[in-house]
Design a protein around this nucleic acid. Structure first.
Lengths: 201, 201, 201, 201
DNA sequence: TATGAATGAGTCTTCATTCAT
DNA sequence: TATGAATGAAGACTCATTCAT
């Protein structure tokens, strides 16, 4: 029943250290196979600290996921706002994804394997809100071009798979090491294919 | 707590019963989160029996994966052999995937989340052989159309993402319940887009 | 992920060994302060075995409580059936309690501290049934003497405190070591007091 | 997650707030199962504050117990001093207990489950002194009536169980919710029984 | 006096795996 | 082949306690 416990680290950035450590572990072992102790080792913090800040492994994963998806989304919206035409927009969606995945491969792999994460209810609803806001903005940006007849009229739920599906599929391939050709080298091919698939003729 | 052990299934079907039970569990809880006991409950067999036939959870998952991927691949090759043109071939790749996923949603979900499975070395090399044979056959089937100039010349590793990426992406969406529109209703859109993306102009 | 585990004990009496070990621990440290490991040490069994049979510490405590209370109750009913008069019955209630506590002091202490136990719902309803059956039988045995006017007519819920309260209170005292005089030496005083308190004048 | 620390209660009352919060928690979850954090939540104070005032959970429990038992005892002595006869004294013991429990059911429950508390050595000896003083005073008050032959001569350690045992037993019943009839309604029955059990004939 | 982040030993619990029957 | 009691390493999580601010 005797305890100790005197703080030996001050770090206001403790949260970030833990998130980075967790990402490295999730990437190496998978979310399910990563143990709280592995994250703690990597982050060089105490178990208690991890629980204090995130409430457990799932809490860390949720926070990481939300941070990652937010960064990916925010970056896209920023670039999209600078686009002037439908073609530029479509290409930007593909190229931004390729850029982002190239720059953050670990985070990208983590986002692509989200099904392993058991989000807490609050995290779930937060995510839902994030998705709604993001896709709302994206669809509203592209909507006018469909109305103007510059893009094909398709079932709404097929636009994203048609535009992003191929680059995402290739990203999976590259991230898993089954192909070595960098995304940057083939991104143009996918951008071109995407525009061809949705442009009005 | 002790009970007399009388077999309640005759052995030949035992394997299939266990595979079906495992699939249901994997689909409900995820591969990593499913326990041997859950499979045993569902299959109404003993732990010993499961170990006798598959050597453990990973063994069941491997067998299930290999059976699934083989069925998917074999079905495609069969339909592909009946095709006469590049366009028919490309469309068939998309439509067959849509058909198969629609008919076997649980198995499809399982195949898409293969990253959670820890394959034994033998299973790994068996899988590698299966993939090589399959993609060899598929590429050899399509190769002549590229040579004849009926299909675009693209970096080889981009064909599959471009043709299958969108339907696969949509399948993920549908399998996860985030969209309700059946695959059959949108498969034609994706087949059309795929052909447009790879046809020579 | 590697495991071992070959059974090194057969024991059909494994359950009893665990119960006895748990009782000793509960008595020494209290239910709440006893750890599963302490019980396992004392019982010289594996943790898995304990969980296999009882599902955890609370399960062991529940089983022990139900066994104990059943033994106490059954003994009383047996002796009560041999009684011919109200006086003999009342004295028997007191003397049987004193006897039983003297013979099973650990179990008695455990029963008296039942509030520490968190019974599972099934255990709870089982206990309720046991109490109903027991008190039903006891009240039906004594009822006729009240009807015949041989015992005082009192509010029903006061009979048990009046008859058993003093000996139970003394038993607590003795079991806690705050008095040394054996129950047997003072039981007659309490039996006499109990009869005086409920006899008709 | 950091917040500025401004005291929300001025210090003199802080102790009482914590004691009340602890009592509520002990009553709801049991002493052993209550955590320092639960008390802190309920008291709306900081962990540091709780440690500053009481040195930990056991310190709070000890203080609460000593306060409670002192109040119960002091009340009895006060009423006893106003009594003129043995009968009045015996009745007062029973009725005061019934009154006190009725007015402070949470505290009464807490006192009755004192076995869960791990008193610090100083608290232990303080308690011992309190008991000695109290029972010394009570026995000295009643002693003369035994000497005068107005009360039965019994083994000394049986007086308290005989007089207080029944009402205490009933109080347990009522405090646990197993009976609904208020103590006040049956207290007279127990007072009568107590006097009958100890009066000289 | 008050605060709460940090600590980590201690506990509970799960679950893959073995093997005697 | 089938069975399931037994095993115990591994992991998640709790919570009393300290101490710099």
């Amino acid at each position: 029943m005797s305890r100790r416990g005197q703080p030996n680290v001050s770090t206001p950035e403790r949260r970030q250290v833990i998130l980075a450590a967790a990402l490295a572990c999730f990437d190496e072992f998978g979310v399910a196979a990563t143990t709280v102790d592995q994250i703690r080792d990597q982050a060089r913090c105490s178990i208690g600290s991890l629980y204090h800040h995130f409430g457990g492994k799932e809490g860390v994963a949720s926070a990481l996921f939300i941070e990652g998806i937010s960064d990916l989304n925010a970056g896209l919206l920023l670039r999209l706002e600078a686009c002037a035409s439908a073609e530029e927009g479509v290409r930007t969606v593909v190229l931004h994804y390729a850029d982002w995945v190239s720059r953050q491969p670990q985070l990208a792999r983590f986002l692509l394997h989200s099904r392993e994460i058991h989000f807490a209810p609050e995290a779930k609803s937060e995510l839902k809100a994030i998705y709604q806001r993001h896709f709302g903005a994206v669809f509203s940006w592209f909507g006018r071009f469909v109305l103007r007849g510059e893009m094909k009229q398709l079932p709404p739920e097929t636009y994203i798979p048609i535009i992003s599906g191929p680059i995402e599929d290739y990203a999976r391939l590259w991230l898993s090491g089954r192909t070595r050709t960098p995304l940057a080298e083939v991104a143009e091919v996918f951008a071109e294919a995407a525009w061809n698939a949705v442009r009005a003729r």
